[in-house]
């Protein structure tokens, strides 16, 4: 698995005193990350449950309101995020092999994709602000309100769900930049690539949430 000649780790990682070795530390950190992601799933869950309940209650209104979303934009963002997951996976495998340049490059692409996602999101949001299709009291599209009096509730869920997801993307960008800088310093190699691996898990989770959001909000409606 390790290829010594490629190892470009220039900064030595110290295993914390309460672990037997690097492997032990890595596996523990990974378990912690999985637990964190489990927590994340439940963090999102009230929104999904609430969405299903209200969609059932106001089926017609949610159907009409969902037509306002641009599925093309959603689809573009889906492609962008899946691509970013791919580059993230590349980053992890490169970091593990100690390929510094390639790791940095893959992380850079991941960050670029993430920004791309946010740009599309920004376009969608600004269009909605312009059209007045906003949550609750802020909703001011009189026409749509007539056709679907509970459209504001749909947009509450739309903004809450995509907003919470976007916050995760923004947080992810912060972490990716930090990992990128550490990768450039050559901190990662076959012996130590825990942060890259954990960031990868997180990023795939963020991607996965979108995979659920996209059909639920843009297509099924």
């Amino acid at each position: 698995m390790s290829s010594p000649h490629q190892s470009s780790s220039s900064v030595e990682h110290h295993v914390a005193h309460h672990f037997k070795d690097g492997e032990h530390e890595f596996l523990t950190a990974k378990q912690g990350m999985w637990l964190f992601l489990l927590q994340e799933v439940l963090f999102f869950s009230p929104l999904f449950v609430g969405y299903f309940i209200f969609r059932h209650m106001y089926y017609h209104d949610f159907h009409v309101a969902a037509q306002q979303l641009d599925w093309v934009m959603g689809a573009v963002n889906t492609v962008i995020l899946i691509s970013s997951s791919f580059t993230m996976a590349r980053a992890v495998s490169n970091a593990q092999k100690g390929k510094r340049e390639e790791t940095v490059e893959a992380l850079l692409f991941t960050i670029l994709f993430a920004f791309g996602f946010l740009v599309v999101k920004y376009l969608e949001y600004s269009h909605k602000i312009h059209a007045g299709t906003l949550p609750g009291h802020f909703f001011h599209d009189a026409e749509l309100l007539k056709a679907a009096p509970h459209a504001p509730l749909f947009f509450t869920f739309y903004f809450a769900m995509t907003g919470l997801h976007a916050i995760h993307v923004i947080g992810g960008i912060g972490i990716l930049i930090w990992i990128l800088m550490r990768a450039r310093r050559g901190e990662f190699g076959p012996k130590y690539f825990t942060p890259v691996e954990l960031t990868g898990l997180y990023w795939h989770f963020v991607d996965l949430v979108w995979i659920y959001l996209f059909p639920l909000l843009y297509l099924v409606g």
Binding site: I53, F54, G136, H137, F138, P152, F157
Partner: peptide, 17 residues
């Protein structure tokens, strides 16, 4: 803060939720 309506019956929400 914003009156998003999920728990507000006047906006179609459900306080029992």
């Amino acid at each position: 803060v914003f009156g998003i309506g999920i728990f507000d019956p006047a906006l179609g929400g459900d306080p029992v939720l």
